[in-house]
Simulated scan of single mutants.
Amino acid sequence: MASFRKRGELQWQARINRKGFPAQVKTFSTRAEAEAWARQVESEIDRGVFVSRVEAEATSLSEALERYEREISAFKKGAVQERSVIVVWKGTDLARRSLAAVRSADVAKLRDEWLKTHKSATVLRRLAVLSHVFTIARKEWGMEGLLNPVELIRKPQVSNARTRRISTQAPSPADAPSTERRLGDEVERILAATGSDILPAIVRLSIETAMRRGEIVSLRWEHVDLKRRVAHLPSTKNGNSRDVPLSSKAVAALESVRSDTGTAVGKVFDVREDTVTQAFDRALKRARAIYLDECKRAGEEPDGRYLTDLRFHDLRHEATSRLADIFPLHELTKITGHKDTRMLMRYYHPRAEDLAKKLA
């Protein structure tokens, strides 16, 4: 039987005691709400479908996020990136609510607010983290009756495929007519503008091997065999190890770093992932500024696409497209580390003029 008692002037507490079940207690603003809740719980007990919501109602979203960060996120490869998403969720008003009180409508409202100022991919990542928090709470933290509010809402449609290819033309002679001027290799321009000692080797290694930024930064000399021209990656993004063949240019890039350090053990590049991206972005801005200054002095109109909209990760796209001209698909997947050939095709962007040359 359910019992009800008034708490203060504005609250009613309902309590249900059934043999073989933990006591269920919940407080409401009115007696009618308390009685409706009690009838629902007693009906579920009678039908044998009752699942206790006590822990879900006693745990705030903020507390669940903290536990998730300690027990789940900390052991992911993308722990640093996911931690920043958790910080965002902890800063919302929803973080103060209990897990059981977070509704799909609340999450949908927040989704719509974020989409006004953030890209769809960013919002989708945030929703994915929240969804996993609820999934873990239900499957591993004993909150079986907890509903996942993210499962019922529409997800933002993401269209972030990149097709940016890098200009690889040789620069024109200084006395060439303006109508025949070639802008030159964008990568070489960027490296000429950098103040970093190791960015040139990292960039050249990336564009020759299609390795990810994190794979390059975590590369160790113990796993590099310059004689066999192979770099071993014991742990990658998809959880598998792989061996990456090294071109002569990739070997030269590695040898240039080893000649400076004089070591054959430890990390090849003693640098963080974000530092690589920041150095690349700074060099790109300097290279663009130098190019604009050249155009101004020559009285020419600058190319709006040259040395713009270029990211470090585009080097992996460029490398994959180049390697696709050499290796068949089944061998290319072994080099790039893609498990799904559909994902690999997102990285392969042949130039139409290059394909035309293969036609009779």
Rank of each mutant, 00 (worst) to 15 (best):
S241V: 03
S241N: 08
S241T: 08
R242D: 07
R242L: 02
R242N: 08
R242E: 05
D243T: 01
V244M: 06
V244K: 04
V244F: 08
P245F: 02
P245N: 04
P245Y: 01
L246N: 00
L246A: 00
S247K: 00
S248T: 14
K249I: 07
K249G: 12
A250V: 11
A250W: 07
A250G: 14
A250S: 14
A250P: 14
V251F: 00
V251M: 04
V251C: 06
V251W: 01
A252R: 03
A252C: 08
A252K: 04
A253P: 04
A253D: 00
A253K: 00
L254I: 04
L254N: 09
E255D: 07
E255G: 04
S256C: 09
S256L: 01
S256A: 08
V257L: 07
V257H: 06
V257T: 01
V257W: 02
R258P: 03
S259P: 05
S259I: 01
S259L: 05
D260Y: 14
D260I: 13
D260M: 11
T261F: 03
T261R: 13
G262Q: 10
G262K: 13
T263V: 13
T263C: 06
T263I: 07
T263P: 07
A264P: 13
A264F: 10
V265M: 09
V265G: 14
G266D: 04
V268Y: 01
V268S: 03
F269K: 00
F269M: 03
F269D: 02
F269I: 01
F269W: 05
D270M: 15
D270A: 15
V271S: 07
V271H: 06
V271K: 10
V271T: 12
R272V: 10
R272S: 11
E273M: 15
E273P: 15
E273W: 08
E273D: 15
E273F: 10
E273L: 10
D274F: 09
T275Q: 12
T275H: 13
T277H: 04
T277Y: 04
Q278E: 09
Q278P: 03
A279E: 13
A279I: 05
F280T: 00
F280A: 00
D281T: 04
D281E: 06
R282N: 06
R282T: 11
A283N: 02
L284P: 13
K285L: 10
K285Y: 08
R286C: 14
R286T: 13
R286Y: 12
A287T: 04
R288H: 09
R288K: 07
R288N: 12
I290K: 12
I290C: 09
Y291D: 05
Y291R: 06
Y291N: 03
Y291V: 08
L292T: 13
L292W: 12
L292E: 12
